[in-house]
Design a protein around this nucleic acid. Structure first.
Length: 606
RNA sequence: GCGCCCUUAGCUCAGUUGGAUAGAGCAACAGCCUUCUAAGCUGUGGGUCAGUGGUUCGAAUCCACUAGGGCGCGCCA
């Protein structure tokens, strides 16, 4: 089981990594567009053979500086052996000739800031209306195959709240990568080979006896007590009668295990479906072991001299009580960056979890996924290095594994820790939580923190209709935009107000600074998608959506005091149409973001 | 003892992969408000980015050390 740690950021910029790529640009990301403009402008100013990879075009930190900025002069001055200010001035002069650029300034240590014409930004709005919720789609992924493995909860019971975070983070990350142009596979690894599933089988056998009329009393210490196993026991009793009632364990264990794991996986799949999560591939650890995949993978390592028999030192400062030196089959993880070599076999001769995980990741690689992402719980943090070492070894450096560790979720109510207790009648499962607040709220809240930060899930706040509930705030923005659109339809009865039609209307009436700022924000969505996808950080979308909502609500509110800023003005149809286009753009971009999260945008608030 | 993660406003947290004067919400304070259906709006105050040193044009961001907190440390998954 891989749920509930920390993210050790194995792939940062500056290191050679398949996750970082910079060439190519799409039409929708206007910053990439101008990156190309800057690169073209550099021709003739600096030598042609310079490395331009660090030249960036970004929004300035302070919007007062302009619409876009580049660090080109500072980054290239050393290579070009030019004074950064002089270089900046020459580059600025060339940029001034660009038809969409209205002003250029050199500032600070050599930043070049420029502003773009209102008509350029209005054209961005038209592009948004044409693209619809596909706005933000990118091709930076270039169709590269990425494998995202998430949830992988043990098939021993229903999903609880801790599982939900990994499920949502993995699912949103997968959607985000797809939006950024990657070819994504969503996978679930079923840990059905360990001792725990034997415990599960025994627990079901107990329920089976119970179903046949036996009084079982309190469930003994080593078994799963959950009532969710009663149904499985009854089903087995119904199908097979008392056939296994008094049989020795060896006769029924395998059959019970199969049945129980299948039943648990059905239950988990139902839970996931209720959360809107669907995996394309489920891989059984046991099936993999039985097919000999582990032997094959380890044979490969063995032939390369990476496996040996040795005795591990006890960990210093914390020696387990029953420690005794013992020769073990070890993988030379230390050759690939791990701290100690890691055992592959248990004393009974069976493979460790680590061993089968090596085989599983080899199988991912062999199936064509050089880029793998695993989403785990934070308590597996200590396992990250060894698996990354193993991936490095088994793929001979061709594969890369990023592990997203999800910190714990604390359920709160009214700012106080919420005790989950069956006896007190408060819920304990994911299903209960979904019933309480709804799938969309669960999904959004789970994405309001970066994965490696602890998350408080406040039941009251999650349903509160106020500014400090981001789910409500974002949904409300979408609903409000739709509401305005409905009023617009009323106003322009019989007129074509489709997105296609709106993309063609005259937008020149949009002139207020806040209107233009809203367009700029919407135009920044493709860039956000790309950066969030490249850094594997879906939570950024939540903050973007909150910003977008704030900008839209702010503009709406200004209309209360300044009637001329209202979206719909009866005596000015042209302006009203332009503003309808703006409002519709907001709805589309919000919907585009919510789609990444798997959250349904609502048309109106109840 | 070792490894990994974390430390940003009173609180909860962002911070665009190293950019310019570090942001938002809540709380606090001061006003406003019956609305393009809408559960509020505007403004103000608030910071040694845990600390020290380093790398460079430039550091909350990268490196080293220190302090505090969390997770993990052979045959569990």
């Amino acid at each position: 089981m891989r749920l509930c740690g920390r993210h050790d950021r194995p792939f940062r910029a500056g290191r050679a990594s398949p996750f970082i790529r910079s060439s190519g640009y799409t039409m929708s990301n206007c910053f990439r567009l101008f990156q190309a403009v800057v690169q073209d402008a550099l021709v003739g100013i600096v030598p042609a053979d310079l490395d331009l990879s660090r030249v960036a075009v970004e929004p300035p930190r302070d919007a007062a500086h302009g619409d876009m900025a580049t660090n080109a002069a500072m980054v290239l001055s050393k290579q070009a052996k030019m004074n950064p200010k002089a270089l900046a001035e020459q580059l600025a002069e060339k940029l001034r000739q660009h038809p969409d650029i209205t002003s250029v300034e050199v500032a600070g240590p050599g930043f070049i800031n420029w502003r773009l014409s209102d008509s350029f930004w209005r054209a961005q709005l038209s592009a948004i209306l044409k693209a619809g919720t596909n706005w933000g789609d990118s091709d930076i992924g270039k169709g590269q195959k990425v494998n995202v493995e998430y949830v992988s909860a043990n098939p021993t019971g229903p999903m609880h709240i801790g599982h939900a975070r990994g499920a949502v983070v993995g699912d949103a990350l997968a959607a985000l990568l797809e939006k950024a142009g990657y070819d994504v596979a969503r996978e679930y690894y079923i840990n059905d080979a360990g001792a725990q599933v034997d415990v599960l089988a025994r627990s079901v056998h107990l329920r089976y006896r119970e179903a046949l009329g036996e009084t079982i009393g309190p469930i003994s210490e080593g078994l799963y007590p959950g009532e969710y196993l009663i149904g499985a026991g009854q089903a087995l009793a119904k199908a097979h009668g008392d056939k296994w009632l008094n049989a020795p364990e060896s006769e029924w264990l395998t059959a019970f295990r199969h049945f129980a794991v299948d039943a648990m996986m059905d239950m988990i799949r139902d839970d996931l479906a209720a959360l809107g999560v669907e995996h394309a591939v489920f891989t059984s650890e046991r099936a993999m072991v039985e097919a000999g995949a582990v032997d094959a993978a380890l044979k490969n390592l063995e032939e390369r001299g990476l496996i040996y028999t040795g005795v591990l030192e006890p960990p210093k400062g914390k020696t387990p009580e029953d420690w005794e030196p013992r020769p073990q089959t070890l993988f030379k993880a230390t050759e690939f960056g791990d701290d100690v070599d890691r055992p592959l076999k248990k004393s009974d001769g069976s493979w460790t979890y680590f061993a089968s995980d090596i085989a599983y990741h080899k199988s991912k690689f062999d199936r064509g996924f050089p880029v793998m992402i695993d989403v785990w719980g934070a308590d597996h943090g200590g396992y990250v290095k060894r698996l990354q070492a193993a991936v490095k070894a088994i793929t001979e450096g061709q594969g890369a594994l990023d592990v997203k560790l999800c910190q714990m979720v604390s359920l709160m109510k009214n700012g106080e820790p919420y005790k989950m207790s069956k006896r007190a009648g408060t819920f304990v499962t994911l299903r209960d939580l979904i019933d309480e607040v709804g799938k969309d709220v669960v999904r959004f809240i789970m994405l309001t923190r970066k994965n490696d930060a602890q998350l408080d899930f406040d039941l009251d706040k999650a349903l509160e209709q106020s500014r400090d509930n981001p789910v409500f705030y974002v949904q409300y923005a979408h609903a409000r935009a739709c509401s305005v659109a409905r009023h617009g339809a009323e106003m322009f009865k019989g007129r074509d107000l489709s997105d296609a039609a709106l993309s063609g209307v005259d937008l020149s009436g949009l002139q207020d600074a806040d209107e233009m700022a809203l367009i700029r924000l919407m135009a920044a969505w493709p860039r956000l998608v790309e950066s969030a996808a490249e850094s594997h950080e879906p939570h950024r979308v939540a903050y973007y959506l909150a910003d977008l909502a704030a900008a839209f609500h702010g503009l709406w509110n200004r209309g209360r005091d300044e009637a001329q800023l209202r979206f719909l003005i009866g005596e000015n149809p042209d302006l009203s149409l332009a503003r309808l286009a703006l409002v519709r753009g907001v709805a589309l971009v919000a919907a585009s973001g919510l789609k990444v999260f798997g959250v349904e945008p609502v048309l109106e608030m109840r």
